[in-house]
């Protein structure tokens, strides 16, 4: 499958929901999509396009908005593809991929913990790395790196 072929298939199915399919070095392409169609898009990629492996879920804080990206692998085509959606910074919410790929569970907990993305429909959206009750999402650009005191107080008071 080629990038433009993928773009044609996705646009014919989702229309306005697909914002664009970019060339991406080393990948089949990067599919930018609207967060509203996330759940349907995941099902399409797994069931129709054969991307059975979810390898990575991560998020980037672009200050004015946040980006969630998913990388998928297809055993038949032997390619990776990246899905990416922009979310507003004040309400970063997207549908969870756990019903489609169970492996998304740990990845999404990590994205919630570090970048503060809310995944709707996730069975157990808790922090995975930082202690429960920690006040910040450390990988936000607004988080200053020399700020261990709050955590220190929190741990000592337990």
């Amino acid at each position: 499958m080629k990038t433009n072929e993928l773009a044609a298939r996705l646009t014919s199915k989702f229309g306005e929901g697909i914002l664009g399919v970019d060339e991406f070095p080393g990948l089949l392409g990067r599919v930018r999509f609207d967060a509203a169609i996330a759940s349907k898009l995941f099902h399409t990629f797994r069931d129709d396009l054969g991307f059975a492996h979810l390898t990575m879920v991560g998020a980037i804080d672009w200050i004015d908005h946040r980006e969630v990206f998913y990388t998928l692998w297809s055993d038949a085509d032997r390619v990776y593809v990246m899905l990416s959606a922009n979310l507003p910074s004040d309400a970063p919410t997207i549908a969870s991929a756990v019903p489609v790929w169970p492996s998304a569970n740990a990845h999404e907990r990590e994205a919630w913990d570090l970048v503060g993305i809310r995944f709707e429909g996730h069975p157990d959206l808790r922090r995975i790395f930082m202690p429960e009750g920690y006040a910040y999402h450390p990988l936000l650009r607004s988080f200053k790196i020399h700020e261990p005191e709050d955590l220190e107080v929190k741990v000592r008071s337990e």
Binding site: F129, P138, I145, E147, P148, L151
Partner: peptide, 8 residues
């Protein structure tokens, strides 16, 4: 040492 989660 500079990390947010590490005891220095």
């Amino acid at each position: 040492r500079t990390a947010y989660s590490v005891v220095p």
